[in-house]
Amino acid sequence: MKPILEVKNMTMDFGGLRAIDSLDLYINKGEIVALIGPNGAGKTTFFNCITGIYTPTSGDVLINPQGKQERINGLKTNIVTRKGLARTFQNIRLFTSMTVLENVMVGCHAVTHTGVMGAIFRGKSTLAEEKFIVEKSYEILKKIGLEKYVDELAVNLPYGAQRLLEIARAMATDPFLLLLDEPAAGMNPQETAELDELILKIRDNEGISILLIEHDMKLVMSLSERIYVVDYGKKIGEGVPEEIRNNPVVIKAYLGEEIDA
């Protein structure tokens, strides 16, 4: 079985700056993989390249949700989402003027079809779809543990809950792979521990594979099955958590080089 996401030799240039330098990466079905690296290493750019916000300068992004590999670079963001890749954002990007439930309902857009005429005439199929959207959204909120905030405006939520809502919203698009961009940023240790559990639950119960960018090493080491380390756009390490912990190149990138006396 081929990996569900395979990135081959991807490069992304911004003018003279090479943000990502021939990166290779793969994720198997049901895996939790972490992408780590110092600030400015190109991790978020990597996410943006996969999800179609940027088009990579060269290389391939291949997905394989149902046994048939497909190249998705250059596709628009909304198409990529419909193919089953959902993401969250490092700087929270919720729909601030909507309620929590509505935020998740927007996520259902990709899997529903009502058009203008349907919305105006509000026929049987539209009503059924509306009901489906509301119920599905509430179901997801319950899984994430946000059901007490249902009718609250998204912007009024505490910071940690906003991060969770981003995950809930992404799950509403029915993804096979969830890309989490620093989900634990700004969370306190207890919230982080809960997030750890939640991510495991999403993988185990929903069968959604996960690729996450994270700076919280405790979370990364406990959650991920494999870790990729990037610095200056290049892959400098790859392996299971134990290997990464003892990899001298990685340590050097994170802690700096020892100066010989």
Binding site: I53, R82, E102, H109
Partner: peptide, 28 residues
Amino acid sequence: RLENSRIGRAWIALKDDEIACQSMGINK
């Protein structure tokens, strides 16, 4: 009716955040 429909929610999502809106599978 439009406002409280899938179409209306897509509009409000577009107003609030264009990038996140596209990431929800909405055709901008």
